[in-house]
Simulated assay, not measured.
Amino acid sequence: MIAVPCYFFYVKEIRPIRKAQEAVSRNKEVIDEIHATAISLMELSFLLQSLAFKHSEQTAEMLRILRPKMRAIPVIRRFADSSLLSRSDSMAQAIVGATRGSQELLEDIDRALRESDIRRLKKYRKKLGDLKRRVNDVLAAEDVSAELEASEQA
């Protein structure tokens, strides 16, 4: 009488756990490699964010300094307020804003990856989707502006 419930308990509870452990053991190398790759991607994201932020700030600062000087030179005065420079300025500001906003998110994701915290990773995936949409909106706005300027010049 005792053996039958023990057998069913083994079949229903213990065997699936053991199969899962065996699957993890068999795929340990793949899981470890995916984890290491995700951490490397996060490190690359930090570097790319720093690069974008650095050059966007430099571009915005350069435009801020050059515009008044361009307005002082009669031959190139009209270029100081051209749509090309305005677009570059607004794009640089948008990049600076996006990279500042993403810094904390990337740090949190990096921490969650290193700690293998699936709950936080799921939460951050939604935030990454929101950030991705914002960046795509900035890129789309830049593409539309370029098309409008090209049609104006034609």
Rank of each mutant, 00 (worst) to 15 (best):
R67L: 06
L84D: 13
L85Q: 04
S90Q: 12
A92F: 04
I65Q: 07
S82T: 08
L63F: 05
I73N: 14
L66E: 12
D89P: 01
R67Q: 12
D81T: 08
S86W: 00
S86Q: 10
V96R: 01
D81N: 14
M70D: 05
S86L: 10
Q93Y: 08
I73E: 15
R87W: 04
R67C: 02
A80C: 09
I76F: 04
A92Q: 01
L66I: 11
D81R: 03
V96L: 09
A80E: 11
S88L: 15
A72I: 06
S90D: 10
I76W: 03
A92I: 06
P68V: 11
R64W: 01
D81K: 01
V96C: 00
P68S: 09
L85F: 15
S86D: 14
S83M: 10
L85I: 11
L66F: 07
I65N: 03
R64T: 12
V75I: 12
P68G: 08
L66A: 12
A72G: 14
R71E: 15
S88Y: 10
A80L: 08
P68F: 11
V75R: 03
L66T: 11
A80R: 02
A72Q: 14
I73R: 01
P74Y: 05
L63K: 02
R64E: 13
L63A: 05
I65W: 02
K69D: 04
L84N: 08
R64A: 14
S88D: 13
L63Q: 02
Q93W: 06
I95E: 02
R78F: 09
A72S: 15
L85W: 07
R87A: 09
R64F: 08
K69H: 05
F79T: 08
F79N: 09
P68A: 11
D81C: 06
Q93L: 14
D89C: 04
S83V: 07
R77F: 00
R77P: 00
R71K: 15
R71H: 09
S82F: 10
A80H: 04
S83K: 09
A80F: 07
L85E: 08
S82V: 07
V75Y: 09
L84P: 00
I95S: 01
R64D: 12
A92E: 03
S82K: 03
P74H: 05
R64G: 04
V75W: 03
S88R: 03
M70W: 07
